[in-house]
């Protein structure tokens, strides 16, 4: 489904990705994990076709990627909307269906039904008619997922969906995405700086550090040997009470979520062409 082959990306004379390589099959739920500044956002943008790799290539369905590929759905980090934005939840979701096209949308039944289905699949029907600017972080997150789903993508890229949510909401979102991957046979690549809330759901982990990647099942990747090889210096992976902690890595996965979120946003802005 998605085939990332030896991707190298330079941004502003800095090598951000230096040989990233992994594959994702249909229906797989994959976590893209790594410390801040590891190049997670850049990798997402490369897959979306917003950044062109200097070396290597990205294939989707064995074809080179291009910008605006309808087979790829994308859920960006939290959007900031003014409380008075004159838009309902369903209008927001409908933009994911045909927002790219020119012209005023005509009200058609098929269109309405597809939006309705997308809203249903993220259990957002109860607030579909509420103004988007007034929704809570978790509610808006679901609408963003619906906005990506309504185009019926076969690969869904989700950028740091958990950093703005409390633990209960984070678990809900993970469960939801897991179900979607199962029921639709859709591949999901979820970016997170903390692996732990995802542990039970993930099929596979892509661990990114120093611009390089390590991919495989969680128990294969998250070992002291393999991560030490990736980092280039000894780190220790510890398992305590069902949690995995990387000790000795640049940010040990113990960064407060706000700080991590800031760094993520900054990274995004700095790399926008």
């Amino acid at each position: 489904m998605l085939d990332v082959r030896d991707v190298h990306v330079h941004l502003a004379e800095r090598l951000v990705l230096a040989g990233v390589q992994f594959q994702i099959e249909a229906g797989e739920f994959v976590g893209l994990i790594g410390p801040n500044g590891a190049g997670k956002t850049t990798l997402l943008k490369t897959i979306l076709g917003l950044v062109t790799p200097d070396l290597g290539q990205v294939l989707v369905d064995n074809r080179p990627i291009r910008r605006g590929n309808p087979a790829i759905g994308y859920v960006p980090q939290k959007v900031h909307l003014d409380p008075d934005t004159p838009l309902r939840g369903r209008d927001f979701v409908a933009l994911g269906l045909d927002g790219v096209r020119w012209g005023v949308p005509l009200p058609r039944r098929s269109r309405r039904e597809r939006v309705e289905r997308a809203l249903g699949s993220v259990q957002a029907l109860t607030y579909a008619d509420a103004p988007v600017g007034r929704l809570s972080g978790g509610e808006l997150q679901r609408l963003q997922i619906a906005q990506a789903l309504v185009g019926e993508p076969r690969l869904l890229l989700v950028d740091e969906p958990l950093s703005n949510l409390d633990i209960r909401n984070a678990h809900e979102v993970v469960r939801l995405l897991h179900e979607l991957a199962r029921s639709r046979g859709m591949a999901i690549l979820l970016v997170a700086h903390d692996l732990n809330p995802l542990l039970s759901a993930l099929d596979k982990v892509v661990y990114l550090a120093r611009g390089r990647s390590m991919a495989g099942r969680t128990d294969e990747v998250m070992t002291s040997e393999s991560l030490s090889r990736l980092y280039g210096y000894p780190v220790e992976v510890m398992r305590t009470r069902g949690r995995i902690v990387v000790v000795g890595g640049p940010d040990m996965h113990l960064v407060p979520p706000e700080a991590a979120d800031h760094a993520g946003l900054g990274e995004w802005e700095a790399t926008t062409p």
Binding site: G68, V79, L81, G96, V100, R101, G103, V132
Partner: peptide, 22 residues
């Protein structure tokens, strides 16, 4: 009328719109 949809998209969901090729 021509601009309505993509302009709305890029205004309320910029990252998503850019990814979709707006």
């Amino acid at each position: 009328m021509i601009l309505y949809r993509p302009l709305l998209f890029v205004t309320v969901a910029r990252d998503q719109a850019l990814a979709r090729g707006v």
